[in-house]
Design a protein around this nucleic acid. Sequence first.
DNA 1: TTCTAATAGTTAGAAAGGCTAATTAATTAT
DNA 2: ATAATTAATTAGCCTTTCTAACTATTAGAA
Lengths: 147, 147
Amino acid sequence: MSKLLDACSQTLMETAPQIMQAIRVEMRRGRGSDISIPQFRAMRFIQRYPDSSLSSLAEHLGLTLPSVSKLVDGLVNQKLILRGILPEDRRKITLSVTTTGSAIVNSARTIARSTLAEKMKNLSDSDLRSILQAMQLLHLIFNDQGK
Amino acid sequence: MSKLLDACSQTLMETAPQIMQAIRVEMRRGRGSDISIPQFRAMRFIQRYPDSSLSSLAEHLGLTLPSVSKLVDGLVNQKLILRGILPEDRRKITLSVTTTGSAIVNSARTIARSTLAEKMKNLSDSDLRSILQAMQLLHLIFNDQGK
DNA sequence: TTCTAATAGTTAGAAAGGCTAATTAATTAT
DNA sequence: ATAATTAATTAGCCTTTCTAACTATTAGAA
């Protein structure tokens, strides 16, 4: 049980919520359309993996199928994504982002990204590299949540 | 607009939610008492700043006063914190953690911390140092949310 | 000093987002 | 052909959050 490992866990538990809060605030600020963080993440996922199923989206988001079904309902109603049926297996649905959806994701992303960048602009390059590396490591570790 | 800065913002936006999710899962697993992340953060804050007011807590959590009032209700009902009146200004309340509250926070913290540590145990010391440094930097940046 | 402003919290009521359990529809396997 | 499995939805509930309206207390101005 290394001291270092312990310190990492601890600081992670304290810092992660703060970062999330900042991100949430920036996302809200950059709204013209009301889009929550999970909705945003959903659209990003669908953008990256077009025609993905509800199940894979649920797994990515770490939510249950019913929750994601509702979340998708909301996005479909706002015409930000499309829900189709997969011909080869008609139980499955295929999700895709509409052009307006794409535009909204991209603009929200740009705004949030630039305000986050603003906050970090006074850091040295070495600090930034540290952060980048740390995030990449954490991304790998926490990507497949719990499996 | 450095590439590095941009990459940092981007990876931050992608990774932070995943980390939060993992933390939430661990907190739930380590429950014997049902305590949400915001409640946990509230108790941590009150532990650190005893006799703090509702307003300062609300500011720390990034929530509105009514929301925090309810959140505090919940903790008071579970006898995890105490809500008193400040004699010098009877409009203000003072919050403090009970001994059972303290015990629960500490055990939840220990459990979550050790399962997070478990996930990171295969990282090298240099990777861990990277993460630690990054978190400390981000903690400083995002501590005073938005001010 | 007395009335008005401002401040600290609470209450009420609505909306959103999550869950479990039950249901429907389609596919696979016996 | 029927049973079991899989994919998604619906129903119903609970929690968390918000805004708006309210109460109580203090501070300030006439």
